[in-house]
Amino acid sequence: MFNEMNVLMLGILGLFAVGLYALLAVRNLIKIVVALQILVKGAIMAFILAGKINGHMQTAQSVALTVIVADTMVAVIGLALAVQVKRRLGTLDVNELTSLRG
């Protein structure tokens, strides 16, 4: 029951559940960037589990490293946008971002 495969599997499901819930429920822009990070961390764990199952651990690890670099850049751009939003609009609440409609 509590072998490492199951723990990894639960971890992936848990991270995706938390990330998707946070994307829908959270209104603070910085917390949304954190939610995106949590989603990608779940996907990285899925790669590690996949490497463990099919025995191609080297490929899985190199993919995981590349993904960490790529999603850090997404976080950087997201936070840079958050800084600009705070400066121009004076708030981080995404519900205030409603000027474009229809």
């Binding site: 995706f16 990330g19 994307l23 822009l29 949304i32 995106l36 989603l39 990608v40 779940g42 996907a43 990285i44 899925a46 790669f47 589990l49 996949a50 490497g51 199952i53 099919n54 191609h56 490929t59 899985a60 993919v63 993904v67 999603d71 997404v74 751009i77 997201g78 946008l81 958050a82 600009q84 939003v85 121009r88 609009l89 995404v94 971002l97 409603t98 000027s99 474009l100």
Partner: peptide
């Protein structure tokens, strides 16, 4: 522009994390 950028980034990044999970499943 900021608003458009934020919407674009959040939706597109969420989409690409789903793609990543899909690739992991195929690899598995």
């Amino acid at each position: 522009s900021l608003e458009a950028g934020v919407k674009y980034l959040v939706q597109s990044a969420a989409g690409s994390s789903l793609v990543l999970l899909a690739i992991a499943l195929v690899f598995m």
